[in-house]
Each structure stands twice: as structure tokens, then as C-alpha cells.
Design a protein around this nucleic acid. Structure first.
Length: 541
RNA sequence: GCGCCAGUAGCUCAAUCGGAUAGAGCAACAGCCUUCUAAGCUGUAGGUUAGUGGUUCGAGUCCACUCUGGCGUACCA
């Protein structure tokens, strides 16, 4: 409908010059008395034309040649809004469209033949995924789902480094626990990984090799730990319904020579210099505040060089869009990387960095500080065991990525009956129940009597269904998965109100069957939306 | 000190590029099940949108400053 109205304005611009190339903002008014879509164009033009906005609106409306089958009326209201009201025949047609498109409804072809890469989680394999990673994982996966819904072919990518200091400490930690379990007296250092999972892996080694690994070096233990931990991480992700397409190891950048190549290119552009035995990148010439070290005096690169090199590989893999999802602790570092990528001649506008704020974990009102090393953490696995994958996903998704997410463990555990995710699923289950019942009564969805739907609860529901496609597109383009969670809650609310006010069984046959067509469409949209946020749609609860 | 993010009802959060009377849920109070699932619905109460100034037809939203909180500010990632 937005497209239709926009085209009306394009036609009108042939007569009204000032409408030429003007973007028409159409929004859904909060107050139903203000119609179904509204534009403020007349008020925007008022300054330029030095005319009263209501006069301008009047002039525009007389030049809008609209079809009464789509729009029942156009009105001027308030200071100069132009309000459009959908006709009932248009609303009825929405249900036909949903019914025809089914699981395709809401998807679009806007980015068909485009390829996107969504990089997320990217936690080094030093321990199980914790609540801290959970938000990143769920947001990333849902952004990927959204991009797929608007046409992109998407690769989900996990970047990790198994070569750094963190991983050496991990290998050490495993070796010490191994020796400890074999009866040696071990003084386990504070700065090593304290978690019980290290002992679990050590036990596996003993089961497999007995004491035969005593003489093995750090590398052996490191590799064993990495392997076991990755199995665990992948298992956790799979419980959340997440499947990564690519695990990209930072080490490949060294082995392939990519790192050296990028370093050389930066040098060729005269963007590096040596100082104090280290190699510096002239970030101050690239719009950043200070120059930064990219190769330490020890010869080891800092994270910046491999990160820049890594991003160049994404460009070489020909993605049209690259989404990087980080926690807010990375917010000072990524601009350096982007500046480096740009300096190498890549189009940095293809990279979209999404920063999500931290999850604040509280237990009984008290904040819990998390640290993988200190083993003071709650794993996603534990959380799934407690409340189920659906609740975990929904909890991490329901807030704006820019907002801190307050995760009260006690509420998450005990409040499962009142969790909003059940509210959505309940709406779906109720519809399924109705449909089971109506089949027994010999009733079927009937699309030729949709004009019988004229109660407020019915019309509001249909209008909400109509907005679904716009919501998906907006959420995808802006990487705001929480919009879909909010939308589905609103849709569920409208359905529950409908359910309370409008009966199907017992109503006159044409009306009953039109209502069946309506709830069938609602079910379709609930299913489609829940699928995008990765939550199940139960038929019974 | 500087940078990014936030501050909206008692609590947790919405509010589509600046739009019309700032909305939900939880908690509180009062109602609704002989009829399709009460994990639901209806009503009452709850607000100087942290503060001060500015921009304009119009500000929770934009700008400046102040206050509070989170995350950063490495030759750690």
C-alpha cells in the first residue's frame, strides 16, 4: 500500500512541480481516528512554499487520483497531515495475499542475488558459551534470518584465534588439571582457567590415554582443549538452532601469507613506520585520533593487523554486505580496523558494524560479574536446561541492541509462566485449537465472504498483518531484530482481543468461515515471524 | 580527562527519518470462564520522558552544557 500511495504522489508531481523527487514519508498513526497511513509532506513543504500547510494539503489531495477499491478516503487533519484510510475491499484482499503466499508472506526480493556475511559470536574456544555470548549469538543468527527474508544469500561466520596467549594459558590449565588428577601435587595459578570443564576434559584424556600424556607439550593439551571446547560450543549453538557456515581461523591469515601481504600494502602506501622497535599504523592520517601499533617489538602483530587482513578476505570473497556484531567492549577498536580497510581501497560502506550493549546479570537483585577465567559464569547450556531454548532466544532478542539487557536469573527461571514468549506461542496454539475444532464442525476458511469482517477487532488484526512485510524490511535493513519480537507481541495482543470478542463456532456460517480465513492468516504470520526469531510455534500448550 | 551507549510509570521496557492525547508487561486494586485453551480479556491507579537552555509549525527523539550508570580509552583480543 505504501508503494501504491507513493506512486499516487509521483503521478501528482506531474502537475505539482514541488513534489518532484520528494520522498513521501508514510507512517502508521497511533490514533485510529487518523486513518491507516499518514504523511506530513504538506508541513515539510510549508516553509519552502511559504503557504499554509492545510492549503498545500488541499492542493495535493485534489491531484491524487486514487482507486476507491484501495482507499476509502483521504483527509486533512490537525496542522496539515494527509490521512489515508484503507477501503474494506483492500483489507479483505490482504487475507487473500497471505493465504496465497503462506510461508513466503512477508519476505521480499529486494536484495535478491546479493550475498551477505554475518560475523558473530567469534569467541575464542577457551570455555563454554556463557550468557555474555548468548546475546551476541541470538542477535547474529536473527539478523542473518532477516537478511535471508529480504533476499540475501547469507553466510554465518565465526572468527576465532587459537594461536594467542589466551590459548597457551588454556593448554597449560588443561595440563595442570591432568597432572593433578593423576595424583600430582599442583599449585594451580590464579590467572589460569578455573572452570570445572577443564577437569572434565582432563578426565577424558585419562580415559583415553591413561598417564601417557605426561610428557606431551603445551601444544598437545591446547589442541585437545580446543577440540573438546568447540564440540561443546557447536552443541550449544545447535540447541539454540544456530548453524554457522564458516569457522574462520585467524591462523589461516598467517599461513596463507595474507597478513604479510596486507602489511606490505600498508607499507607501500606509506601508512606505516617503525618506532621503539614496533611497527605503527598512521591512523592519525586516516581520520583517527592516534597512531597505533600493528606489530609489537616482539614481532607479534596486535589484533589490528589480522583484523584488517581478515576483513580484506571478506571483500575478496565478494560479499555485498558484511555485518560485524560485537559487544560494546569492542566499540573503541573497530573504527581502527575499518579505517585500515578503507585505506587499502575497499568500500567500507559495505561493512555494517552492530554493537550490542552488555547483558547485566542479576541474581536476587545482586549483580553477578562474569569471567570465563574465574569460572564465575552461567553457561547458555545451563540456561537452556532451566528455561528452554525458546525463552533463552526470546529473552536475548526482545530488547533494542543499544540497550543494556537486564537478565534476572530468578525471574528467568521461575517466571516462565508469565514470559512474553508464551504469550506469542499461546496465540498460535489457540488458533490451532480453533482450527482443529472448526474442521470437526465441517467449517472451512472462505475467502468470498470477507466483507463480513467489519468489527474493530477484526479490521485491526488485518491491518496489522498488512504491516508485517514493512516490519521485516525495516528490521533487516537496520539490523534491529527486537522489532520483530515487538511486532509479534502486538499481533498476539490483537488476536487475543479478537478471540475474546469474536466467536467462530456458533456464528452465522459466512461470518464464521470468513473469521476462519482471518485466523488462518494470523497463524501464518505468527509462524513466519516466530521462524525468523527462531522460536517454535507449538500447536498445543 | 576523552570516546561510544544508555537514562521514559514503583520494576522491566516500547514509541517506525522530528508528528497528532508518551504506550505495554510485571507489581497493586476491581471485574470476566454452563459456549472455539483464563498461559487470556476488561477496567482503575500510576509521568515535569534525569536536569537546564536552544533549534521550529511541532522535541522523549535534533544541538549545547550538567548529573547518573555501563563499556572502552594497551606494544591484551
Amino acid at each position: 500500500m505504501k508503494k501504491y500511495i507513493t506512486n499516487l504522489f509521483v503521478d501528482a508531481s506531474k502537475k505539482l512541480d514541488y513534489l518532484n523527487d520528494r520522498e513521501i514519508q508514510l507512517s502508521v498513526p497511533a490514533n485510529p481516528l487518523h486513518g491507516d497511513l499518514s504523511t506530513n509532506i504538506a508541513m515539510i513543504l510549508t516553509k519552502e512554499l511559504k503557504k499554509n500547510p492545510r492549503q498545500i494539503a488541499e492542493e495535493i489531495i485534489t491531484n491524487l487520483n486514487y482507486n476507491k477499491n484501495y482507499i476509502s478516503k483521504i483527509e486533512i487533519a490537525g496542522p496539515g497531515f494527509i490521512n489515508f484510510t484503507f477501503s474494506n475491499s483492500f483489507l479483505a484482499d490482504i487475507l487473500n495475499v497471505v493465504n496465497q503466499q503462506k510461508e513466503e508472506f512477508g519476505k521480499s526480493q529486494k536484495y535478491i542475488n546479493k550475498r551477505a556475511n554475518v560475523e558473530f559470536i567469534s569467541a575464542n574456544p577457551t570455555g563454554p558459551l556463557t550468557i555474555g555470548h548468548g546475546r551476541n549469538a541470538v542477535i547474529g543468527d536473527t539478523i542473518a534470518n532477516l537478511l535471508e527474508a529480504v533476499g540475501y544469500q547469507v553466510d554465518r561466520e565465526y572468527y576465532f584465534n587459537n594461536a594467542g596467549r589466551q590459548m597457551r594459558v588454556l593448554g597449560d590449565s588443561l595440563k595442570l588439571r591432568y597432572l593433578e588428577l593423576l595424583g600430582e601435587k599442583i599449585d594451580f595459578p590464579d590467572d589460569h582457567y578455573q572452570g570445572e570443564y577443564i577437569r572434565d576434559i582432563a578426565r577424558k584424556l585419562i580415559d583415553e590415554f591413561g598417564d601417557g600424556c605426561k610428557q606431551k607439550d603445551n601444544n598437545f593439551f591446547k589442541e585437545k582443549a580446543e577440540k573438546e571446547i568447540f564440540i561443546d560450543i557447536k552443541n550449544t549453538l545447535s540447541r539454540l538452532g544456530i548453524k554457522m557456515a564458516i569457522f574462520y581461523n585467524e591462523n589461516d591469515l598467517y599461513e596463507s601469507g595474507k597478513l604479510e601481504e596486507v602489511k606490505q600494502k600498508l607499507a607501500d602506501k606509506n601508512l606505516t613506520y617503525e618506532k621503539d622497535g614496533a611497527l605503527w599504523l598512521k591512523l592519525s592520517e586516516l581520520g583517527r585520533e592516534d597512531d597505533k601499533v600493528i606489530v609489537k617489538s616482539t614481532g607479534e602483530p596486535t589484533y589490528r593487523l589480522p583484523d584488517i587482513a581478515y576483513h580484506t578476505t571478506k571483500f575478496e570473497r565478494n560479499y555485498d554486505l558484511m555485518v560485524d556484531l560485537f559487544g560494546s567492549d569492542h566499540n573503541a577498536t573497530y573504527p581502527d580496523v575499518i579505517a585500515g580497510v578503507k585505506a587499502l581501497g575497499y568500500d567500507e560502506s559495505k561493512i555494517k558494524v552492530v554493537i550490542h550493549q552488555f547483558v547485566t546479570i542479576t541474581q536476587g537483585g545482586e549483580a553477578v560479574k562474569m569471567s570465563t577465567r574465574k569460572a564465575n559464569f552461567i553457561t547458555i547450556d545451563e540456561l537452556i536446561d532451566e528455561v528452554g531454548a525458546d525463552v533463552v532466544r526470546y529473552f536475548f532478542l526482545m530488547r533494542n541492541v543499544n540497550s543494556h539487557l537486564n537478565f534476572d536469573l530468578e525471574i528467568a527461571k521461575k517466571q516462565s509462566d508469565e514470559n512474553p514468549v508464551f504469550y506469542l506461542q499461546y496465540a498460535h496454539a489457540r488458533i490451532c485449537s480453533i482450527l482443529r475444532m472448526t474442521v470437526e464442525q465441517g467449517l472451512q476458511p472462505y475467502y468470498d465472504s470477507l466483507n463480513k469482517l467489519e468489527k474493530e477487532e477484526e479490521l485491526n488484526l488485518i491491518k496489522k498483518l498488512h504491516h508485517y512485510e514493512d516490519e521485516i524490511l525495516y528490521a533487516a535493513e537496520n539490523c534491529e531484530p527486537n522489532k520483530i519480537a515487538n511486532y509479534l507481541e502486538e499481533l498476539a495482543t490483537l488476536f487475543h482481543k479478537f478471540y475474546t470478542e469474536c466467536r467462530i463456532i456458533g456464528s452465522e456460517k459466512d461470518l464464521a468461515e470468513a473469521r476462519i480465513a482471518l485466523v488462518t492468516s494470523v497463524r501464518t504470520v505468527l509462524q513466519n515471524g516466530l521462524k525468523i526469531i527462531g522460536i517454535s510455534a507449538p500447536e498445543k500448550m
